[in-house]
């Protein structure tokens, strides 16, 4: 924008209205950069107390104990990554398949309807998902699914231990439902970028429809799909309310899907208002800072991947 305005050389043509408009826009654009940097800075300063106290061990210590002042984020990071990966595992195949179906197979009217419905999923407030998880999903898992899994597969660490319905499994499923619209709508955009000529070329070579999907769309759009996955991961990573309600809120390093756990976002939601001591508060802020950095990383990686793919197919 700025370079464009410079090109038409505002100052010599000097239309006062344009000039004022230019500065107003510039001000707002810079304001966002300023907000972003100052936010990161403030969170970092507030978490400095904890970082200086614990050093790097903050990220490898598994206990979260405000009473004994042993505060480590590993179990929280583990819970966050585990639940997000679980969500991706469930959501990615469904989302990609769904996007393929809408773009390539479904008739136009059906695609519009379904596309609209899935986007609506993204508009549902997360606390509604949380309540649904608590009142419908968790009891269903406890009564119907988990007893079967526990009986037949309890030799796997993934399905060991007692089950309550609430825990890692319900958190993963709720997150998967929440990130499906994000991933599928982005995949839809990505698949649209791939030129029709590519698909036709593959088909004329005698490929079946499935082979066309595989070679032209999925392989051609792989970096775009990765971008969508990263964005979904970022969303699952930072999801707070719904996860807090169904994950069981126990700081815990357990491989079991039945076990209650805690994520970085959910511990902030539950403990920040009533932190015991300065150190506890600072450690929570440090968790927030970690969350901030990781989210920024995944979101920018996603933007970068999609940008790269667009560039590849547009030239």
């Amino acid at each position: 924008m700025i370079s464009f305005l410079k090109k038409i050389n505002l100052k010599t043509e000097s239309h006062v209205g344009d000039l004022i408009f230019f500065w107003i826009l510039k001000f707002f654009a810079l304001l966002f950069i300023f907000l972003f940097i100052s936010m990161a800075l403030v969170i970092f300063i507030k978490s400095w107390h904890a970082f200086s106290q614990f050093g790097f061990s903050f990220f490898v210590d598994t206990s979260w104990d405000s009473w004994r002042k042993e505060l480590g984020a590993l179990a929280l990071i583990y819970g966050t990554v585990f639940s997000s990966l679980l969500a991706l595992l469930l959501a990615v195949p469904i989302s990609v398949a769904f996007a393929l179906f809408l773009n390539e197979i479904a008739p136009r009217w059906l695609a519009t309807c379904l596309g609209f419905l899935v986007e609506m999923l993204a508009a549902v407030p997360s606390i509604i998902y949380g309540m649904w998880g608590l009142f419908v999903l968790a009891p269903f898992l406890r009564e119907k699914i988990q007893p079967v899994l526990s009986e037949n597969l309890s030799y796997l660490p993934l399905f060991s231990g007692p089950y309550y319905g609430i825990g890692m499994m319900s958190a993963g499923i709720i997150l998967a439902i929440m990130i499906t619209p994000t991933i599928s709508s982005l995949c839809k955009e990505v698949f649209k970028i791939i030129p029709v000529t590519n698909k036709e070329a593959v088909l004329t070579l005698g490929a079946t429809r499935w082979e066309m999907f595989k070679t032209a769309i999925l392989r051609g759009g792989s970096s775009g799909i990765m971008g969508a996955v990263f964005l979904g991961f970022g969303r699952a990573f930072g999801e707070t309310m719904a996860v807090t309600m169904v994950i069981g809120n126990k700081v815990n390093l357990s491989a079991s899907l039945f076990a209650p756990s805690q994520t970085m976002a959910s511990i902030l939601a539950t403990q920040y208002a009533e932190a015991d001591s300065k150190l506890h508060l600072s450690a929570l802020t440090a968790v927030g800072f970690t969350l901030f950095v990781v989210s920024v990383f995944f979101n920018s990686a996603s933007l970068f991947l999609i940008w790269r793919m667009k560039k590849k197919w547009r030239t």
């Binding site: 104990d65 405000s66 004994r68 309600m245 069981g248 700081v251 209650p260 539950t270 009533e274 015991d276």
Partner: peptide, 20 residues
């Protein structure tokens, strides 16, 4: 276990607020 506003309970499930 210890004492305080939030303590590391050895087992069980956590919920938010009295209503939770």
């Amino acid at each position: 276990v210890g004492k305080g506003k939030s303590v590391p309970w050895p087992f069980g499930l956590g919920a938010k607020g009295n209503e939770g």
